[in-house]
Design a protein around this nucleic acid. Structure first.
Length: 634
RNA sequence: GCCGAUGUAACUCAAUUGGCAGAGUAGUUGAUUUGUAAUCAACAGGUUAUCGGUUCAAAUCCGAUCAUCGGCUCCA
């Protein structure tokens, strides 16, 4: 029997032989570190017996797939510890996830943080006991009986959902047995570094109508040093939290009297306006015309648009002169009314109406999160009205525009295509045509994309752009939605070259998504140290002592006259103190001015990252920083 | 909305478990006049989230409400 190994080498073994034996044969050390095998592309247990020619890659906790196996075993150890300490606890599911693992448990009264310490201690004991994990198989019927004896209702439900004739695998570590497809480590002693991270609630099978279970999150790594590095990374990520930086940098604030409604402070407003100036420039350049539509519109409009039926629970409403009104949760009907206000010819199309629309949505209290999830936000919206033959080119241009924005900030992103949801509006044919249009366009552009079946908007399929932030969280920002429904509902028309009336097609699109959230993402992305073109304060002038306040004021005036955002530190503090504060405010340029500088008409430049850059003339400094700002360098 | 935790000065956190609400930072005032990440001193700052209850006595115990945090669910 021939086994081809990952490095391309070929080994011959007498059949049958276990994956573990092959691992041990390659190297004893490697065998001890092995967590699983990848047999012909599929992750298998070390216990798996190989009996014909194959390709095999031995996985260790240093491979992502091997680490997942390692963490999954750690989840089993945690479940065993919990069953030892709390016999009445019922186990649900416990998979490995991106940064660790969790286990959902049904326990009367839930867990407390002190319990986590006890569970960790019991897990250490289980690891010391060096318990071998044994795999065995039962028929489905026997598996149900087995779990019934053990009084594990969630496991029974899981088994009953499997096909009737299937064989079901279990893993046993002494008194503890869990339903599990595997694979797993051979022995509990192989877990070297783990930590229980947090406690949370989670619905059984992710359904909010089901019972809320207690979820314990933990993580595990091959080495203690890797675990510590991960914990340090989490601490670092906390320092970047936009809610914390928003406060220390004076960008925005929240207040109990307006939960989910952010306040922008002077410095945050500069950031926002600078971003929007760029946005205006970008959209002018790309043939958009900006409009602004009312915040408050009659309920009947929302009924026509379909929003009332679909989202009335999340809309803020009020009554004016005995008529129902709603605060807009979206800008589209406003855009549609603008289109309708005139008669259009095919020559007007595509008509690109952009709008920085302020929308309000009543998000449930538990899901608010700093600027990332708010109840009032500004969409950088646009509605494009066009004829069917313009769809492809138009969407291509929108993709190009969005790509330009993300590249400017150095964001990585990926694209997802979302198809028809259950609560869709319109005909199957329209949906199919719209979805195929998007799909073939992505294929034409050779863009990689993930398909999300059933995740589209109720009026049409969409292409979503997902950004990755510093902590690795994914944020959906840009979206392009193709809509046949609103033009139909509002009876939109244009006169074609043939003199007949035709129905336009509509694109809804945003590039930044929510301005507020995008700013939150920018804060974390740059850790508050914005590129100079975006920074609320671009230069801080620091006089060596009060004697040089006048000279400092002159420098500041020259900078401000040149269009640079500069501040002067007028306090009678030591220069070291002023520098410290400017550093903490993440200001990229500090200009020190004292006797030497005043004499020559110079400034001494200090950069946040590079330290002392020596003296130069003010003219040179202004010229350099202006070109840095103009080019939007970072 | 659901599960869990939390809420004390502008910020970060104490208060020996029910016995006089305190420190550092920031702020103000004064002194100092400084050359590359914290000069010194004084002052001011509070209905302990809110409302109610238990108690001789509540930041502390109990209940309700509000908000925040970690998740779940949701996100047109």
């Amino acid at each position: 029997m021939i086994v081809t190994l990952k490095n391309g080498s070929i080994k011959e073994y007498s059949s049958p032989i276990s994956v573990l034996d092959i691992a041990m044969d390659i190297s004893k050390d490697f065998g001890y570190m092995a967590t699983a095998g990848k047999l012909n592309g599929k992750v298998v247990d070390l216990r798996h017996v190989v009996d014909k020619d194959c390709s095999l890659n031995i996985l260790t906790a240093n491979d992502p797939e091997g680490l997942a196996v390692y963490r999954h075993t750690t989840a089993h150890i945690m479940a065993q510890a919990i069953k030892r300490l709390y016999f009445q606890a019922k186990l649900a599911i416990g998979p490995s996830i991106a940064n660790g693992f969790y286990y959902d448990i049904d326990i009367e009264g839930g867990f407390t943080l002190e319990d986590l310490g006890k569970i960790e201690a019991e897990m250490e004991k289980i690891i010391k006991e060096a318990i071998p994990l044994k795999r065995f198989i039962l028929t489905r019927d026997d598996a149900v009986i087995f779990m019934r004896e053990r009084k594990e209702p969630y496991k029974i439900e899981l088994i009953e959902d499997l096909p009737k004739e299937s064989e079901i695998s279990f893993y046993a570590q002494n008194e503890f047995v869990d339903l599990c497809a595997g694979p797993h480590l051979m022995n509990t002693k192989l877990v070297k570094a783990f930590k229980l991270i947090s406690l949370a609630g989670a619905y059984w099978r992710g359904n909010e109508h089901n019972k809320m279970l207690s979820r314990i999150y933990g993580t595990a790594f091959a080495k203690k040093s890797d675990l510590n590095a991960y914990l340090t990374m989490i601490e670092e990520a906390k320092k970047r939290d936009h809610r914390k930086l928003g406060k220390t940098l004076g960008l925005f604030m929240m207040n109990n009297d307006g939960p989910g409604f952010p306040f922008f402070l002077p410095k945050g407003m500069i950031l926002k306006n600078t971003l929007l100036n760029y946005w205006h420039e970008l959209h002018n350049r790309n043939g958009y015309q900006e409009i602004s539509t009312p915040l408050l519109l009659n309920k009947s409009l929302w009924e026509t648009s379909g929003h009332w039926d679909h989202y009335k629970d999340n809309m803020y409403t009020t009554m004016i002169d005995e008529q129902d009104y709603a605060i807009k949760p979206m800008n589209c009907p406003g855009g549609v009314l603008v289109y309708q206000s005139e008669v259009h010819s095919y020559r007007d199309l595509p008509l690109r109406l952009s709008e920085l629309g302020i929308v309000h949505r009543h998000e449930k209290s538990g899901q608010l999160h700093g600027l990332m999830r708010v109840r009032c936000f500004t969409q950088d919206d646009a509605h494009i009205f066009m004829s069917p033959d313009q769809i492809k080119n138009e969407i291509k241009d929108v993709i190009k525009l969005i790509d330009e924005v993300y590249n400017l900030f150095g964001f990585k992103y990926h694209v997802e295509l979302s198809t028809r949801p259950d609560n869709f509006m319109g005909s199957n044919e329209d949906w199919q045509m719209a979805t195929e249009a998007l799909r073939s366009l992505l294929n034409d552009l050779r863009m990689e994309y993930v398909v999300h079946e059933g995740d589209g908007a109720f009026y049409g399929p969409k292409i979503d752009f997902h950004l990755q932030d510093f902590i690795g969280r994914i944020w959906q920002c840009g979206t392009i939605q193709l809509d046949f429904q609103l033009p139909l509902r509002f009876q939109l028309e244009y006169t074609g070259a043939d003199g007949e009336k035709h129905r336009p097609i509509m694109i809804h699109r945003v590039a930044l998504g929510s301005i507020e959230r995008f700013i939150g993402i920018l804060i974390e992305h740059f850790a508050g140290a914005f590129p100079t073109w975006l920074a609320p304060v671009q230069v801080k002038v620091l006089p060596i002592s009060e004697k040089f306040l006048n000279y400092g004021a002159q420098i500041k005036k020259s900078l401000v006259d040149a269009g640079i955002r500069a501040e002067l530190d007028v306090r009678s503090e030591t220069i070291a103190y002023k520098i410290r504060e400017a550093q903490n405010q993440k200001i990229s340029y500090m200009l020190l001015v004292g006797a030497k500088e005043e004499e020559m008409g110079n400034v001494t430049v200090r950069t946040r990252l590079g330290g002392n850059q020596g003296q130069k003339s003010l003219e040179n400094f202004i010229e350099e920083i202006k070109s840095e700002i103009a080019e939007k360098r970072f």
